[in-house]
Nucleic acid binder design. Structure first.
Lengths: 325, 325
DNA sequence: CTGTTAGCGCATTCAG
DNA sequence: CTGAATGCGCTAACAG
């Protein structure tokens, strides 16, 4: 592998001239440019980007932190990030954490150690305090609502969406409303719980602790959920399911066990995944692709100094009516 | 951000000594080591990994090339890759290509330009000839059968699995057997077509061009497929569906339209995804996670020079009997 | 328009 | 066990 110096020699110019043609600078005489291009071609030269990264102090790479890549929810978000990254020639470094704080910290270190120029944290275990410590090394964007910190974020309003969904169920006649969460102690779960309690209180409805179901993340969890509900003395008549995968699992299991939807059990999903359409599940479209796309946009603008302050961006949502309620 | 030189000064030692403690070298006097560690702590020092990458000529990063990340098939493979990478402290660079050769080439350039130490190509559009040109820059591993080239691979036997599945359907009494493919002109599709023709010929069965359905990749494609089949004069009675997402879409659509499975239409899926279990779809378990894990292992061994020659590895598969046949 | 030169930050010989 | 010196490959300021 030749280096820039050898190209310079071969072309009979200086290294700076080579660098100039490599970087498409103007003000290079045409014959010298040709000579360099010829030498590059002949010697099969290619830049060592690590040297470029070192001298530029940037890598054109942003890190994406998420618990697992093989997941419909995260997949959509990353897809959104990836599409935007492509547009501006940025690379994506994937950090699969499994919600282990050790791995999340490793990702943060990549920012500190200049392996990535910025970080998008799609979901996390680490506290915001821990994360914020690394903000001085580069822009960090979270996919959840974060205020009053040196962290940017893009999110959709969990509170409002829950509220709207509960009212929707209420207006359809449901009075025994429950919901599922992915992890009970996550930031969004806290918000949702508040929305649940507030909204039912304001409607004069009842909320029950045992109508809240934890650890619902995957398809199988939906099937498990049905089993649990069927065994209850006081089952809810309607559920907010935070994720269409779980909703799909629930729908299929209901079918298998001849539980009628929505008559015996009604529910509303989340994410508007393709499967919810096929199964006729009423869901909330929260524009996951856009969340990813915006998260990248924010990081990018900050990296390229188009803006200095942290950015807080909320995206809208809407209920997609189908036939599970 | 301090650099190694400033740490050396602060600790009253030379840069080489700092470098030694940073890299856990033996033969550093305890008091000097302490002094360095103290300085690192106090000045909040962290290495600029780009400098390390430059001097070491490696980045501990491998690139993963795939058309789209938001996909159950690729998700499983990447998950397998990621888990292994974590074990040995390697990073993953994601290259979402959308099967655009331009983007695939960009990934190849990352190898050439020393951004990544190796490449795993999960699926591609580019020809093997094009890809092979880059093998001199670092190990490239494909997730498909490739022989007689300077490329490694890990795969499961499409031919044998198709053969076995067809015989399985045949033994269940089916005589009108068709199949679906993702992209008609991909490497695996060619192999499958051969297996289809060979096996049916050897059984004395019939194979028909219009029993082969192209562009079947996603859930929705399964629903579309059913519509197509229902409109045929001579529909197949059984199908090999190359992907459980498509099989799931087909199953759900069949349910919605009161098509009885397996009586009116039987089929066997592929990938043994969670949804196939829930829907009772007979499928082929081709160990996608392991394909990813092995692909990483191969790359890793080659990068670390534990082996020199290209590696060709085949993984087994088995039919998982459920109730769609 | 072009070449010289001084770094970017670190690892690593080679003497001692 | 330690430090001085060299080089990894490239960019950019500077002087011409």
């Amino acid at each position: 592998m030749p280096n820039i110096k050898q190209i310079a020699e071969a072309a009979g110019v200086s290294v700076s001239t080579v660098s100039r043609v490599l970087n498409n600078h103007p003000y290079v005489r045409e014959d010298k440019r040709k000579a360099v291009e010829e030498a590059v071609e002949r010697l099969q030269y290619s830049r060592n980007m690590n040297a470029v990264h070192l001298v530029k102090g940037a890598t054109q790479t942003i890190g994406v932190v998420l618990p697992q890549i093989n997941n419909a929810y995260f997949g959509r978000v990353v897809e959104g990030i990836g599409e935007q990254a492509l547009q501006v020639n940025y690379q994506l470094m994937l950090c699969q954490t499994g919600y282990r704080t050790h791995e999340e910290r490793r990702a943060l270190h990549m920012l500190r150690d200049k392996i990535v120029d910025g970080l998008i944290i799609v979901s996390r275990s680490l506290s915001l305090n821990q994360i914020e410590k690394y903000a001085k090394y580069g822009p960090i964007t979270l996919c959840e609502e974060v205020r009053g910190r040196s962290l940017s974020c893009v999110y959709f309003d969990h509170y409002a969406s829950f509220q709207k969904a509960i009212i929707y169920l209420w207006n359809k006649g449901h009075r025994r409303i429950g919901y599922t969460v992915n992890r009970r102690n996550s930031a969004s779960s806290t918000t949702r719980n508040k929305a649940y309690l507030d909204t039912l209180a304001s409607l004069g409805g009842e909320s029950r602790e045992n109508w809240i179901f934890d650890n619902c993340m995957h398809l199988e969890d939906g099937a498990r959920l049905l089993t649990k509900i069927l065994a209850m003395d006081d089952p809810p008549s309607a559920l907010l399911i935070t994720g269409d995968q779980v909703a799909a699992g629930l729908m299929i299991a209901a079918h298998n066990q001849s539980v009628r939807v929505p008559d015996d059990l009604a529910f509303i999903g989340l994410d508007n995944q393709p499967i919810s359409k096929l199964l006729g599940i009423t869901t909330i479209d929260n524009r996951l692709n856009e969340i990813g796309a915006e998260a990248f946009g924010i990081s990018y603008r900050q990296i390229t100094k188009q803006t200095d302050s942290t950015i807080i961006q909320e995206l809208g949502f809407k209920i997609v009516e189908r036939s599970s309620v």
